[in-house]
Write a protein that binds this DNA or RNA. Structure first.
Lengths: 249, 249
DNA sequence: ACCTGAACACCGTTCAAGT
DNA sequence: ACCTGAACACCGTTCAAGT
């Protein structure tokens, strides 16, 4: 009675063709579910029911994969701001209003772009870390273009556009990076968000109050602290600075 | 004639004791010289003429090592701002002036802290990437404390201190991260700075001018562009925003 | 062209054994 | 206590071979 030995049985293989898009999509799902360290080539072959060579046939290397996934996330946010009907986070609007409300000023557009990027990094924390590894990816050029256009509409002189756009974008990347770091730390701690915040507060409580008075004050506000609100406040602060310095009146 | 076989000869071992500080120092030198990827445990054992276990006896793991090295860099900057005599970048002043000039206002202090951090990341690019991996390291609490104190002196109300400090610090971390990314890309390109900038300009030149007008304008200014000046402009913009919103008059 | 998967080079980390 | 270094588990990547 010949029985096929189980340990040498091949893993089932996919029947449909592999594409770069399918691979990037699968990578994104792994990254979202289990973080950047979980994205191994091995994990990808298992999820896609394929071999290493198949993946390397469509993708240069792991960095290429991470960069492509990041591009997709950022590009989706910019597209949603440019044309709100494309917003994946928005409720589906089967019948587009024939007279779209187009009252959004440059400030509002900049605010929604910034908050859109914040929310995207919140759901894809690995994006925040990736931004400090690959500078000026294609998608970032779209962000720059969008920011510059709005700043110009605000009356910022042409030779100051890159300074102002840089201030706004670097602030956004900074928050994105901190969010990524927080997500990593939270995941590594094996605690839920509540416990984790409590443990941070406990650590800060042990600091010398004479040397760290401000940290102690911030600790007291930690529970009602809202990351998203604080981020929005920072955006407004920078926009206020731009208005104050380059007011066109 | 018995000859000791060369291939089995032991590597020479250090005679003085190993300390955590010595290890962190050696790691910093490797990081500065050849970037984050060059810091392998193997490279460390070779440089320190020791074994793996010796290192793991003083340091928890590779992340611990990177975090400690980052702490040292940041802490030195904060210390230099708090007491300029400690500034490692400043010229040695063997005889401290008996009447130190203490005319620096909060704005000046914040500017020197920000520029000090910028310069530190410029010479230690790996610090920029590390900041997005480990949130709220001890040294960052010192930065927060310093920033908060100065903002309070500027008249920012107490319940807005964390918003304002966050805006400033996240902007600094954002620029630090981009600098780290640029340093990585520059190192990976095997070009000098001049060639690298030219290649970036060439890539941008190929973009559709109708879709990326602002990128094309920025490209024209790329040659006379100064990262440090643009960073300082961003700091001033945020300070202007803080002044505009929380002016105490 | 597209895919397979054993093999390679190289990591971080451990631990039984030494001093 | 402090250190050694072979061994382990696990990476990303390659490439001769298949379809």
């Amino acid at each position: 009675m010949a029985v096929m030995p189980t340990r040498t049985r091949r893993a089932p293989r996919r029947t449909d063709a592999l594409t770069r898009d399918v691979i990037v999509q699968a990578a994104t799902e792994i990254l979202d579910a289990d973080g950047e360290d979980a994205l191994t080539l091995r994990a990808l072959t298992l999820r896609l029911s394929t071999g290493y060579g198949a993946i390397y046939h469509h993708v240069a290397d792991r960095d290429d994969l991470l960069a492509a996934a990041t591009d997709d996330v950022i590009a989706a946010v910019v597209a949603a701001v440019s044309d709100p009907a494309l917003d994946p986070a928005a409720a589906p609007t089967p019948v587009p209003t024939s007279a779209p409300t187009r009252a959004a000023g440059p400030q509002d557009t900049l605010r929604s772009l910034a908050l859109g990027l914040f929310d995207a990094v919140q759901t894809h924390p690995w994006v925040g870390a990736q931004l400090t590894r690959e500078p000026w990816r294609p998608a970032l050029l779209d962000v720059y273009e969008c920011v510059s256009t709005q700043l110009q509409a605000l009356g910022v002189p042409e030779d100051k556009l890159s300074d102002c756009a840089g201030a706004l974008m670097n602030y956004i990347w900074g928050v994105a990076g901190q969010n990524a770091a927080n997500a990593r730390a939270l995941a590594a701690s094996n605690m839920d968000r509540e416990q984790f915040l409590a443990s941070v507060a406990r650590r800060w409580a042990q600091l010398d109050p004479a040397r760290y008075p401000s940290v102690h004050r911030a600790r007291a506000q930690l529970r009602e602290h809202d990351d998203r609100e604080q981020f929005a406040a920072g955006v407004d602060l920078i926009l206020a600075g731009i208005q104050a310095v380059y007011r066109n009146s």
